[in-house]
Design a protein around this nucleic acid. Structure first.
Lengths: 97, 97
DNA sequence: ATCGTCTATCGTCGATTTACGATGAATGAT
DNA sequence: ATCATTCATCGTAAATCGACGATAGACGAT
């Protein structure tokens, strides 16, 4: 559901996490923790939320887990948002004085 | 902040409310309550959240309050989302094997 | 085999959210 | 003046969230 994905994006830390991961392939959790004034468990939780929303994917590799953007999900979200924006911005036609 | 506005959109009832108001000028609270299986106080609260996020504007008129879309805010949000999407979808350049 | 590193998960606490009914203020109708 | 309608707000209960420390499992290095 759209609301679910928007919820995943509706926290400043998660937005920042997403941006940190963007532009990298295979970004491990530790990298993000190091760049953020949050406990490791907190970051891990936020990552989980993003993964569960489908916006991130993770790949356990050796002792670490690499996260990366799920571009398909992002593209789908963009489409949904476009539909929403179009609907909400649509002209009423009954407002001509 | 972007996260704030996304939060306002991240609830199914609020999304529905927004869609109900879209395409109408001067939509009173009662109309929405009637079209939704939620208590009046609940709808009123959700409207408040949307207003506080700037996505809706309200105009008390007689005994009722008319709500309408704040198109400028929606447009601004769309721009912010475009930036986010662009950043997140950007190619890494380091993935060519 | 032992130790350090990386990460997920658990338990917990306080804060916030969501929903509702009740209430009250303002307006409109009679 | 009385009464009904419309809406915002208050109080409240249950659920969820956000953050943390502690812990445990898996892996890599020695």
């Amino acid at each position: 559901m759209l609301a679910e994905r928007l919820r995943a994006l509706s926290h400043p830390v998660r937005l920042k996490v997403l941006m940190r991961i963007a532009g990298r392939e295979r970004c491990p959790c530790g990298d993000i923790v190091r760049e953020m004034p949050k406990a490791q468990s907190t970051v891990s939780q936020h990552l989980k939320v993003l993964v569960e929303a489908g916006l991130l994917e993770c790949a356990p590799e050796g002792q670490r887990t690499h996260y990366h953007i799920n571009r398909e999900a992002i593209a789908a979200l963009r489409t949904e948002m476009d539909v929403l924006f179009a609907a909400v911005m649509s002209d009423t036609e009954q407002e001509k004085s």
